[in-house]
């Protein structure tokens, strides 16, 4: 649910990075944080375990610029990917405006991708959202690793509706901003459509 404040002239939108454990959701946010100008970003908050696994969420506020005199802010969240954090994952989806699904390209993680995507659909449905009707982008991450599934196969299994997708190497920043720009544009176009 975007929040439009006429008094402070701000539009706030919430983007959630979803995906199986260790797929690179936090790495996406860390790269965005590293490469954004100081005046455009707030603090990167990570609620993580001692071993740097996301415990509750990561949070990064971004202010990219103005549209028609309104400051556009994106609030980026990641969910904890590990299976047993199901309850926390659901909480973070509340009020989401757009979802990025980060898929792990490694062959042995395909089952985890499928399971996580199903989990996303179920959790969204509980808030009354339908993945086919909200801004949604897929990122195929870890394209630099040797044991990866071909993109065509990932598309067939994970992206039957052919939503925008990007190949990425999040540790090096490849595809990270492309993914963010895509979901940001989709969200603003959706907002526009509703007026």
């Amino acid at each position: 649910m975007s929040f439009i404040n006429y008094s402070t002239r701000e539009i706030n939108c919430k983007i959630v990075y979803y995906g199986p454990g260790l797929c690179g959701k936090t790495t996406n946010l860390q790269y965005i944080y590293k490469k954004t100008a100081p005046e455009q970003k707030g603090k990167l908050i990570s609620l993580a375990t001692e071993t740097e696994r996301t415990l509750f969420f990561d949070f990064l506020p971004l202010a990219l610029g103005d549209i028609r005199g309104f400051r556009v802010r994106f609030h980026l969240y990641t969910v904890p990917g590990q299976v047993f954090y199901a309850a926390s994952r659901k909480l973070i989806l509340k009020g989401v405006d757009g979802v990025v699904f980060v898929a792990d390209s490694q062959i042995e993680r395909m089952d985890a991708n499928i399971e996580s995507l199903e989990d996303l659909k179920i959790n969204l449905a509980e808030y009354g959202y339908d993945l086919e009707r909200i801004p949604f982008t897929i990122q195929y991450n870890k394209r630099d690793l040797p044991n990866i599934v071909p993109v065509e196969e990932m598309q067939r299994v994970l992206n039957p509706n052919n939503v925008p997708y990007y190949e990425a190497i999040a540790t090096e920043g490849v595809g990270v901003f492309e993914t963010l720009k895509d979901i940001g544009k989709q969200i603003l176009k959706e907002l526009k459509k509703n007026y």
């Binding site: 649910m1 006429y6 405006d97």
Partner: peptide, 9 residues
């Protein structure tokens, strides 16, 4: 998706 709009007054 629903929006939350806050007006000046």
């Amino acid at each position: 998706m629903a929006e939350f709009v806050l007006y000046e007054d």
